[in-house]
Amino acid sequence: MPTEKTAITLTACGKTFADGTRALQPIDFTIAGGETVVLLGPSGCGKTTLLRIIAGLEAPDRGGRVLFNGEDVTARPIERRQVGMVFQSYALFPNMSVRQNVAYGLKVRRVPRDERSRRVEETLGMMQITELGARRIDQLSGGQRQRVALARAIAVRPRILLLDEPLTALDALLRDRLRVELDSLLRDLGITAVYVTHDQAEAMALGDRVAVMSAGRIEQVGAPRDIYHTPATDFVADFIGTMNRVPASALAAWEGNAGDAVLFRPEDAEIVSGEGAHLRGRVASSLFLGDRTRLVLESDGLQPIIVDTGHRGTIQVGEEVAVRLKPDRLIPLPATGGESNPC
């Protein structure tokens, strides 16, 4: 891998499609060399468009610029940007074997035969797919295809690795395993990586930083921990994890600000016997999750409240319970209506 790590700088990168759809508001964003940034958001939020602009598959609107290590590559087509891409559909060449797929980028770049096969074997070994080398693509499982797609992308030693929902097509168990492997691979390579997903668990686990996107703009950029604990906007607060929102006026014996709403995560409330309770509600449903039980509480005039409890005793549906919030764990209220400034 190149010793020099590539930083990506986007300035005023917007995207309006030919039919007038505004896919991306002009965005300024910097990704440090060697960093893994996850673009997270619901479908249609512009995350894939942003990735394709970095890749060179889409050109930004006039005035937008893409810089790799300060060098303007906006006009450079993807062929000459030295980026590795992994697609959700894998996009493996069906008319080539696994080995030929992995060798393709090296062949196109006219790497000498000896060097080429050495690097192909090395990459296959790194992805633990050496024994699949001679297989045809239609003889591979989904997980194997994803490994081949990764091997093909990194065999050419790209400056940047771009991953578009690489695990979405896999079943949950395989996804978890490959996520762990992908995490250690990205760390071993030390390569600058941009990873697009709509799965927040993936985003939290893989990203050095996570950029939460909505409606063509970046709502918030930060370390996964910060995004989870101090969401900058209402959208982030509601999109990441499960969030309860209760008006302060509905809380009994509340010492904080009485004006606004109070936001808290399900794990930051506890069921108490009645003393010091802030809320009361009737258990509408109870879901046993092994390490905890997730309760949905109904209370007059409030949205359903979700509380996770490690309580070992059984709590019956229909039972009245008292809830106490942990005041130090409350989520600070995002500035409402204010323009977020992510960078």
């Binding site: 062929e79 891409m85 996009a91 493996l92 393709y104 196109v108």
Partner: peptide, 23 residues
Amino acid sequence: LDPRLEEAARSLGAAPWRIVADI
């Protein structure tokens, strides 16, 4: 034809004539 195949080939550095011949 899956357009992703061509995009993958381009990302690997393939020129247009190579994409026609190989993909």
